[in-house]
Simulated scan of single mutants.
Amino acid sequence: MSTAKPVTMLRKQRVRTLWISDVHLGTRDCQAERLAVFLKRYQAERIYLVGDIIDGWKLRSGIYWPQSHSNVIRRLLTMSKRGCEVIYVTGNHDEFLRRYSRLVLGNIQLVDEALHETADGRRLLVIHGDQFDVITRYHRWLAFLGDSAYEVTLTLNRWLNHWRERWGYGYWSLSAYLKHKVKTAVNFISDFEEAIAHECVKRGFDGVVCGHIHHAEIREVGGVTYHNCGDWVESCSALIEHRDGRIELYRLAESGSTLPLPVVGEAA
């Protein structure tokens, strides 16, 4: 005689808005499995993809696209089909999409920047942020060189966390740690934050939501509220607007959850 255990369905958390950036689909360091599980936990009215979702730079040198990367696209399309507004804000790694800005396909919009009004009435500029990175704008060769060096760090990060998981430790980002310790990196982040905050003040915004530098944070800068989504390569972070307008910074390493990988054949 066989017995069947009842299946407990996790109830999705209803939120007003999700922001994710710097997923870098098409690269080996993309945490696509964890992102798909994260997205599945929420029922959002709107989701902003704040640039560098697809890594066009990497795809030029060769195609790497496992099923897990397709699963992220599938999850976003499913959310759109169920009524979630998906706004794709272009970045520098997916700049090939900028020629199609203002394209609208059902519930999916493609833009270079967007205005978001929170439930409590604040006006936020949503932009990837590469426009405020002097190296990306004026020294593209140096940006490509820096991208290669960053890949080396991410490879070390991947192997480090492989062994941490085997020994029962949680996720930890080596590259994020280095950003806090290396003086030039700290200065670069500070300059970036100040430049984008200045633009918000000039244009009359209450704050900004951006990505680009893979450094998740919410803080006051130059009289506006600066929000950075982080990324799904090293820190696995996102921004969540609750129904009262409160914006929360989600970090996998601080969530108390391991975001287990999805079971094969699990319903969407």
Rank of each mutant, 00 (worst) to 15 (best):
A149L: 03
V201M: 01
L77N: 08
F192C: 10
D22K: 00
I127W: 06
E254L: 13
L10N: 14
T258R: 11
R243E: 15
H93V: 06
P66N: 00
D29G: 12
S21G: 10
W172G: 08
V224M: 02
V224I: 14
V264M: 12
V104Y: 04
Q109F: 15
P66A: 01
S190V: 10
H116T: 09
R74C: 12
L97W: 10
I54E: 02
T258W: 11
R243I: 11
Y64K: 05
L239Q: 10
A195V: 05
R122Q: 14
W163D: 11
Y42K: 06
S2Q: 07
F192P: 08
T3M: 08
V221T: 07
L261V: 13
W141K: 07
V152P: 11
G62K: 09
L142P: 08
L142T: 05
S235M: 12
L25S: 07
L103I: 14
Y100H: 14
Y138V: 08
H214S: 11
N187A: 10
I54G: 01
N107Y: 04
L259P: 15
P262N: 06
S148I: 10
R41M: 15
D52V: 05
L39Q: 05
V208W: 00
V263K: 12
W141E: 15
I247P: 03
V50C: 02
A216W: 00
H198A: 05
F144C: 01
I54N: 00
G265T: 02
V186R: 05
I189K: 03
E220N: 10
C84N: 09
L125C: 13
L76N: 07
L239W: 11
R14S: 12
I47S: 02
G129I: 03
W167P: 06
C229N: 03
I47F: 00
L160V: 10
R246S: 11
L110F: 06
Y226P: 07
Y226T: 00
R98Y: 09
V86G: 01
A267C: 13
I47A: 00
R74K: 14
L239H: 07
K12S: 11
L142Q: 03
F38A: 06
L124T: 03
G121Y: 01
T258E: 09
D29R: 03
Y138H: 12
A268D: 15
K58G: 13
A44F: 03
R243G: 12
P6C: 02
L174Q: 07
R122Y: 12
I108N: 08
S235R: 14
E220G: 04
A32V: 05
G168T: 10
F188A: 07
N107S: 15
L35T: 09
H24Q: 14
L154K: 00
L156A: 05
E254K: 12
H242V: 08
A185I: 08
R166K: 12
E254D: 15
